[in-house]
């Protein structure tokens, strides 16, 4: 990638982490607050992700929509890479993810290892580390290589999921989250997977 400035990388890392959190679990009271009136509300509105309405009702409705979209028990779109690559849980992506998680120093239970929310979070951690290593050429290059490798192995696949998820959900919030994530990852794909 072109040498970005530190602030852009911090923003990138933060956005990965935000997406990670929004995909990995339902919206809870704290995140409802954050996305409706809190520190992120204005920026979230810019992307169509601002939440509004009676908190309890909105949170309940979003929990139902999250469940229908990714947990099931029926008609859902599993957010685990193994299901997309091998048609079952605990495929090789889980083993590969464990290697990356060892590198980034995280322990995640085996089922969640290849969950797209975890994968976006790991990408955020790598980019975050990169943002603070710009002055060190060796470390910066190693981290960039790690980010490229991880993106190719464990982030690029997510678009397949998002396409199907977008066809599946009627949820306004998750529909928008799908669109935003797709848009973001398409740009990231160009950055991380382009010929060097």
């Amino acid at each position: 990638m072109d040498v970005p400035n530190r602030e852009d990388l911090e923003g990138l890392a933060g956005f990965y982490r935000l997406l990670s959190r929004l995909w990995v679990a339902e919206i809870d009271e704290m995140w409802f607050e954050v996305l409706s009136e809190g520190s992120l509300a204005e920026a979230a509105e810019d992307l169509g992700l601002r939440l509004e309405g009676p908190p309890a009702e909105v949170i309940e409705q979003l929990a139902i929509e999250y469940c229908q979209l990714m947990i099931g028990p029926q008609g859902h779109v599993p957010p685990h890479q193994s299901v997309w690559s091998e048609g079952q849980f605990q495929g090789n992506p889980v083993v590969s993810m464990q290697q990356y998680l060892d590198v980034v120093g995280e322990q995640i239970d085996s089922t969640m290892r290849d969950h797209l929310g975890v994968q976006l979070g790991v990408m955020g951690m790598v980019v975050d580390e990169l943002s603070s290593s710009l002055e060190d050429d060796t470390r910066r290059n190693d981290l960039a290589e790690l980010a490229r490798s991880f993106f190719g192995d464990h982030v690029a696949w997510i678009d397949q999921f998002l396409v199907r998820a977008g066809e599946s959900t009627e949820s306004k919030f998750y529909g928008r989250l799908i669109a935003v994530t797709r848009e973001f990852l398409a740009e990231e794909c160009r950055e991380w997977l382009k010929e060097s």
């Binding site: 933060g14 982490r17 935000l18 990995v24 520190s39 085996s110 975050d128």
Partner: peptide, 22 residues
């Protein structure tokens, strides 16, 4: 994205949020 990411970054600094740490 970057603007939102910068705002979110402060709130989400650290490891993986809610990802099932064994």
């Amino acid at each position: 994205f970057l603007t939102l990411g910068l705002s979110a970054g402060a709130a989400l600094a650290g490891g993986l949020a809610g990802c099932g740490d064994s």
